[in-house]
């Protein structure tokens, strides 16, 4: 038994094996050097800019307002789209998940919609809303709501049956049941759904901008591409990648803060 350590500390220490920062830096350096060599070789010709040129282009873009406006626009559409996914997907998923009958009768519809490549719906949504933020947000919801919905359905089935009895025996109000039983019980699966949805929402945001022409990073990417400014193309692509990485790190951080008590997060099996 961990004697006097706080629960948070006990949760995050655990058995996880940390690789030193040095090893990670070596891996990154190797990739960059490989890229530099490839870009300088004849194989790539002049279609592949060197990492140094990309970095220069990126720093150059940081000085322009276009870059920051595009970044802000994309993030805004992403956030609104993701929020809509959460507001619709989580409650609907939980409600469908509570009842076995509802789960089974809706399962095939959900599987059907989920397997449609969302990008195939772009022309339709484009006809409805034009090359606008509304189109982009609609596309985000259509793409990212499924993992959240399905994770929430499973989450509802994870609630400990004995605890459902406990709250009945102690006559907790519906609101207290929601707060003290349901919310913590479903948080692991729902937050995993959020993580998947967040990544998918960003992918769809940039795709909708790039292909559908809604304003944002995707449009800027398309513009510099048409102008054949290769280092800038890479700089924008790099921006999108960093954004994706950052969002993932953020969601994992929140998940760990929220679920420090969970057996999976604290890194041990429940007795």
């Amino acid at each position: 038994m961990p004697a006097k350590t706080g629960p948070r500390r006990a949760g995050l220490g655990g058995k996880r094996h940390r690789v030193g920062l040095g090893a990670k830096l070596i891996a990154i350096a190797t990739v960059l050097i490989g890229w530099q060599l490839l870009a300088m070789s004849r194989v790539a010709g002049d279609s592949l800019p060197t990492p140094v040129k990309v970095l220069q282009a990126l720093i150059g873009l940081w000085g322009t307002s276009d870059y920051w406006t595009a970044l802000g626009t994309t993030l805004r559409a992403w956030a609104i789209g993701l929020a809509l996914c959460a507001v619709i997907g989580i409650p609907v998923g939980l409600i469908l998940g509570v009842s076995m009958r509802a789960t089974q009768s809706t399962r095939w519809i959900i599987d059907f919609f989920r397997t449609i490549p969302t990008i195939a719906l772009l022309p339709l949504v484009l006809l409805l809303f034009g090359a606008s933020a509304r189109m982009e947000i609609t596309m985000i919801v259509l793409a990212a709501i499924w993992p959240l919905l399905i994770q929430s359905m499973y989450a509802a089935k994870q609630v400990e049956p004995l605890l459902k009895w406990v709250v009945r025996v102690f006559r907790l109000s519906p609101l207290d049941r929601l707060r003290y039983l349901w919310a913590p019980s479903v948080s692991l699966f729902v937050s995993t759904g959020m993580r998947l949805a967040a990544t998918m929402a960003l992918l769809m945001a940039i795709s909708a901008e790039y292909i559908g022409g809604a304003p944002g990073l995707g449009t800027e990417l398309s513009n510099v591409e048409e102008a054949l400014r290769r280092p800038e193309v890479f700089a924008y692509a790099f921006t999108c990648a960093m954004l994706g990485l950052l969002i993932n790190v953020l969601v994992v951080f929140i998940q760990r803060r929220l679920l420090w008590w969970h057996p999976i997060i604290r890194g041990e099996r429940a007795a």
């Binding site: 009895w165 102690f170 969970h262 429940a270």
Partner: peptide, 30 residues
């Protein structure tokens, strides 16, 4: 209201996200 139950499986009948004190104080919310 005047009945309480202690279940066999303590590892499943207590809430892992609440401290010992909060677990015990929870029924008093009603």
């Amino acid at each position: 209201a005047e009945m309480a139950i202690v279940f066999q499986d303590y590892s499943r009948s207590l809430m892992p996200w609440l401290s010992v004190l909060d677990n015990v104080a929870l029924p008093l919310r009603s």
